[in-house]
Write a protein that binds this DNA or RNA. Sequence first.
RNA 1: GCCCGAGUGGUGAAAUUGGUAUACACGUAUGCCUUAGGAGCAUAUGCCUUCGGCGUGCUGGUUCGAGUCCAGUCUCGGGCACCA
Length: 796
Amino acid sequence: MIMSHYDPLKIEEKWQKRWEEEKPFAAKDNDNRPKMYLAEMFPYPSGAGLHVGHVRNFSIVDCLARFYTQQEMNVLRPFGYDTFGLPAENYAIKTGIAPQDVTKTNIDNFRKQAKRLGYAIDWDREINTSDPAYYKWTQWCFLQLFKKGLAYQAENYQWWCPVDQTVLANEQVENGCCWRCGHEVEKKKMKQWFFKITAYADELLDEIDNLDWPDKIKTMQKNWIGRSEGAEIDFEIKDHKETVRVFTTRPDTLFGATFLVLAPEHPLITKITTEDARKAMTQYCKDAIKKSEIERQENKEKTGVFTGAYAINPATGKEIPIWVADYVLSGYGTGAIMAVPAHDDRDYDFAEKFDLPIVKVIEKPEDIEDDSKCYHGEGTIINSGAFNGIETAEARDGITDWLEKQGIGHKKVTYRMRDWLISRQRYWGCPIPIAYDKNGKPHAIPEDQLPVLLPKIDDYKPDSSGRSALAKSEEFMKVTIDGEEMTRETDTLDGYACSSWYLWRYTDPHNDKEAWSKEKVNYWAPTDVYCGGDHAVAHLLYIRFWCKFFADEGYLDFREPVKKLLYNGYINAPDGKKMSKSKGNVIDPLDVINSGYGADTLRTYELFIGPYNQDAAWSTEAIGGVYRFLNRCWSLVFDKEMIAESKTVSLRHKTIKKVTEDIYRANFNTAVAAMMEFVNELYKTGAAKDDVVALAKLIKPFAPHLACEMLEKLGSDDVWPKWDDALLVEDSVEMIVQVNGKLRARIQIPAEDAADKAKLEEYAKADAKIASMIADKEIIKTIVVPQGKLVNIVVK
RNA sequence: GCCCGAGUGGUGAAAUUGGUAUACACGUAUGCCUUAGGAGCAUAUGCCUUCGGCGUGCUGGUUCGAGUCCAGUCUCGGGCACCA
């Protein structure tokens, strides 16, 4: 017989053309069916095009989208592009080609490639963050935050290269030098824009436990927010009217505070440093501030300089020296600490190095073993006047209350999370919709003047002002608000701002009156399943923050943007290393398709490669196995004679159950395995029409083109098949006989006897091999029949 | 240093409530078909062996029964890392 041939490229072209014309994936805003909103983290459309990592990510979402569509739900599965950012700007600086033009080329390429994969995308909802019709509303979002005081300006130290006269990102500073010119960089105080994410710190933290998200991400977010409860305490400074405020989580150790330490950036340093210390202090602070965060953390050898000034410990009344050291961070708490060397490792190291007094104030319980140099656990308070003898936990409240009565301390909650710095001195970003009057006061651009358009310019390089290239456009800079001439802000927004609300824009992407309509957003959102493999903290925290803010403002009826998060692993090169252009080990999905495998094989392979949330190495051999499997599916319909009556009814129902439940659990790899088992069996027994119809429906979320081709030939719809529990059972089942927990016999028994424990025992004893093992009845201690299908005989 | 995960064949991995360890796939071997095959189909494939025994990183424990639960330990991966 001449075999016809499974030709994926031909089949896929046919169905993609049909989907392009008929738009079967358009989501309906008014629909009685239950809704299902699925999205992946939208890609940055790089010049390199789609890679196999995108394919894994998109294929997971597509599998779910098609699965729920076949379950007759109203599915929204949109697509878009995160287009602002450094690569396009650097490319423009190098080549002079406008980022707008590069971006358009890249998007066109991404779209074309995504269509080759046959995704069930509602293409009419496509969005692009650098499109003025989109970023108009990013600017609107900024203004809502600005109006509520949650977008604000503050002075902040930034890296500054005095030769290039530009601000540098932390990653652009190498060994204290500029990555471009190699000159030593400095830290410069600059005014920057921030979003006050800390205003939502408590809710962002408390809601984490209720999220259906991977524990890994939840833990990372908790650590990132880093809530600490403690107290702020004011220390008087001898011979000065100023006080030093410190934050501590251990107010119970106040009597053991034998010195204070200020961060090198602390504003009081210049005021209180004595003449003799001044020179050394200036040098120390200058050096410390210059050091990068990384350098400050790498070298844990304690350094510091004494100010010459003394504070008064309010508990003991004693004078204690005030030091400056870079182990105290300016950005956390108050930038100053009370040092308790007896009960804190860092303070202990410092005290030992500079020969400062160590006073023990906690006696550890006798049953606790702890031979470290200083004890930081709980215990009984000593050397603390009226507080002696009480437990540390109690003393934390007691001492805080006492401080509060004196008016020199209070309870305080502090977060490790800082406010979100959003201004970028870059051209290729969303302009911040702000203008400054003559006095430098910021004003919101009126909403009817939005969008603030990003002008096309010739030279994208930042200029000597340290501002973005926008400052060079005189036309852009001038603006009139309420008859007053003002100057525009030249910073652009962090790209993460653009992606903090796109999930809501998808629900109403063409709205030119508002960012989204309340009706549409509350019908579709929150997103039911969101899938990505990156941005564990930043993006996934920012969308939660904006969701809570816009819920407070009445624009959303929900406070968490994503119900279920699927965090997929990476696809690595066959050797297990990261794929990268420079290593030359990149697998191009289009090459895989065009080599003859087709998109269905690629998609199914990437879902079969392993658990979706685990990294996987590409295998050029294993993908062939998936192709063979699809080929066998195809042959069942197009090559083989069908049999009249199915011989695999029970397995068919088992397979339907397994695949359905596996997709709900996101166990895509075992769902594919179950279908392979089913096909292998059909090859042995022959396949009836019911068998292949079920198979085609089950395989559609994985290999949609092939499935459509099969269903068309079979004249079937694609409605998701159901299983019948009664049909899962086969006529005869295998029972297991163990002796002392070890497998000794397998016996075929009628299925209806499987639940009858007495009968199972009889079968077991009747088996020749078992009978010989227990011929001497004396040795039987007990017989355990825990449930259907298993007997364990325990012998002496 | 602290906090999480994970260790199962030659390889990627299954085992969903404590109940047949290694499903499915790759690779390998053999056969069939073929002018030919890097195609297709079929069979076999944890280890040692004569019966039989041993096997889920290692050492113990609980249990009639442990990959799964408990204690300890080793290794690898990830996150945080002077946050007071």
